[in-house]
Amino acid sequence: MRLSRKSRSVLTDIWLVGPATCAMIVLIFIPVIIVALMSFTDYQFGARSFNWVGWQNYIVMLTDPTARHAVTNTLVYAAIVIPASIFLGLIVALGLHHLALKTPRFASGLRAAYFLPVAATLVAMAVVWQMLLHPSLGLLNQLLAAMGQQGPAWLSDRGLVLYTLAVIGIWQSVGYNMVLFLAGLAAIPSDLYDAAELDGAGSGWNRFWTVTWPMLGPTTLFVTVITATGAFRVFETVATLTKGGPAFASDVLVYAMYREGFVYFKAGYSSALTIVFFLLVLLVTALKFGILEKKVHYK
């Protein structure tokens, strides 16, 4: 039987969008609903039954002294990594942008060096960092020893470990921010600088504040949100280097969610951690889409 043209067209549409749509619903939306529901249960992987426990999981997470580490550490980590890696990314981008005017090849070589950590496998590089930071054999402490200093145990000192991880996080994300800033700088029309010159904003410092910084506004917002989402989901370095220790000093949301869920099988509690993580990311990502819309309007 020959189908009518209309129904053939409908079948074509289903054939084209159906697989992706079904996969999207099955792999994203249904799981999100399930995880939200599970966060109100005490379900354990492998258990035959579960109870509804209301807000219990959330209350534990936010009030229990040890459990609270995951949330606070994530926020502290983000509070260090976000400004530092944006600031450094901007500085490097400004320098390279300036350098590229006279020696483009040299500048692009340097750019590659700064971007290398972004492309490299983070877990592998974390293992290398472990060697660098090794209390006795590591390059860093050997250098300190050569200067007559006794270097600390960077990754097993409770007070230090989170900052060490933050430094690695910054090292890994500076190149990414630099690239975004470079794109933003390249998009600033050069006649704006000429205009600034005529208006008397001649020095580099003045030019930066009158032209560059305002024109980079959208880029900066964009970079901020991306760095923030990246910082909230820190996992690889923690899993590789500290497993959240010592004594939860470097516990972060995603790692806690992994440990509670897949090591201790507390699926309900892990779901609650997931939801908190999700809400944090959602907050900044929603912000990002607002900005993106604006960016589109600019053009």
């Binding site: 969008v17 749509t21 999207m24 619903i25 792999l27 994203i28 939306f29 249904i30 799981p31 999100v32 399930i34 995880v35 599970m38 992987f45 989402t229 989901r233 996992f235 995603v254 969610m257 869920g261 897949f262 699926a267 892990s270 779901s271 997931t274 939801i275 993580f277 999700f278 990311v281 959602l282 990502t285 929603a286 889409f289």
Partner: peptide, 26 residues
């Protein structure tokens, strides 16, 4: 609607779906 779902899906980090996906695969 489908494009709206795609945009919404874009907001969901993979980690969020991990537990149910693990359950299903198990």
């Amino acid at each position: 609607v489908i494009f709206g779902l795609v945009l919404a899906g874009l907001l969901v980090p993979f980690h969020v779906t991990a537990i149910p996906l693990f359950l299903a695969l198990a």
